[in-house]
Nucleic acid binder design. Structure first.
Lengths: 199, 199
DNA sequence: ATATTTTAATAGGGATCACTATTTTAATGG
DNA sequence: CCATTAAAATAGTGATCCCTATTAAAATAT
């Protein structure tokens, strides 16, 4: 018999490493140690399984990250910790590199439009979460009222996506964090040294 | 008969939109108006065709972009124009969104490792080009000698990758350029307004 | 015009794709 | 112990994957 959460965990890992189109149902059933009919009776279809595996994984990470973001830390501190946590997630030694959502299903066959739309919606949601935190910072006087919080969120969203891509290409933890340190110097009103060197 | 360059252009466009794994040889032969044996006699294999289509496309864009970068404009100006040019490339109305290289083959099936490695090498090369320009800026006194040019290049590389991802998700030209404007405020020694709003 | 070479099209090979109908096994109930 | 239900495995669906052997057409040569 198959424990549902164990199956989702195994599936998520496969999808994470190989992408939606790069993972076959044969890969999935083999890794879960089940037969094809069990996959379909338990999860519905490959697309449904992907959806559930993403939800499952996001739920696990989200509690810690949203705790960081929704804490009453100063917004700049919260953002820093948030980004560092993502850099750590991109480079876990026992997990596939990169982020499961940030750089998933960007290019895709016509038949997988719905899967692409779903992952895009997840990315948009996470940027809206970031924007909401920045809006709160405006309300609380931590950011100037005229701040373009939407663009600011999309800027750090781009950093998150870039980190995921570079992690996929083999970048290590400290390299990503050096990159974050530069991105943080773009924070509105931040004074910076003239070097750009974090050492 | 098939003109080689026309075939590469058509292939590049398909790979660009659907990715390597999302594009089948049947898609390619149909779009080029040829039969399968012609594809293999002309290009060798699907992987070889992808390689050649990438080279073909890169060669076309590279002359303009490397001209911007290697000009004797101040490095900050050159970088700005370079990034804007990429934003334009990510959002051409008659072309697929995003960049053909920046966010390609990040996740992949085991059997496509070599394709992934090739695209990763192209990304690394373009970041090295950026780093080389920054190193020149250090030599010419435009950047402090202690500048971490490698991280700076990878930071703007991340911006380029993030822009490509967001373009794939439907972001328009001006949205990407607003994002660039924030990224440019991270330039070493740059003073910024306290707003983050480019209007 | 016939023979030869070159080029293109058809047809198909072996494997794998996502997914199921059917059978077999196992568990439960009387 | 047998009948019935529930679970799991086998086997196989048609479609599509990348790629080629073979046949048909066209171009060149004698």
């Amino acid at each position: 018999m198959l424990d549902r959460d164990v199956g989702l965990d195994i599936s998520a890992r496969l999808f994470w490493e190989r992408g939606y189109e790069g993972t076959s149902t044969a890969d999935l059933t083999k890794a879960m140690g089940i037969n094809p009919p069990t996959l379909y009776s338990t999860f519905g279809s490959k697309e449904e399984l992907y959806r559930q595996a993403l939800d499952f994984s996001i739920a696990r990470e989200n509690s810690r990250r949203s705790k960081i973001l929704q804490s009453n830390l100063p917004v700049y501190e919260a953002l820093s910790l948030y980004l560092y946590d993502i850099a750590d997630g991109d480079t876990q030694p026992d997990k596939p590199p990169g982020c499961m959502v940030s750089t998933a299903v960007l290019q895709h066959a016509e038949e997988n439009v719905s899967v692409a739309r779903m992952t895009a919606a997840l990315r948009e949601a996470s940027m809206q979460t970031l924007k909401a935190r920045f809006d709160r910072a405006v309300v609380e006087g931590e950011l100037p009222v005229q701040t373009d919080t939407d663009t600011l969120a999309r800027f750090y969203g781009a950093i998150i996506q870039g980190m995921s891509a570079q992690a996929c290409d083999g970048a290590c933890n400290v390299r990503l964090k050096r990159l974050i340190d530069i991105a943080l110097t773009a924070w509105p009103g931040k004074l910076r040294s003239s070097t750009g060197n974090s050492d």
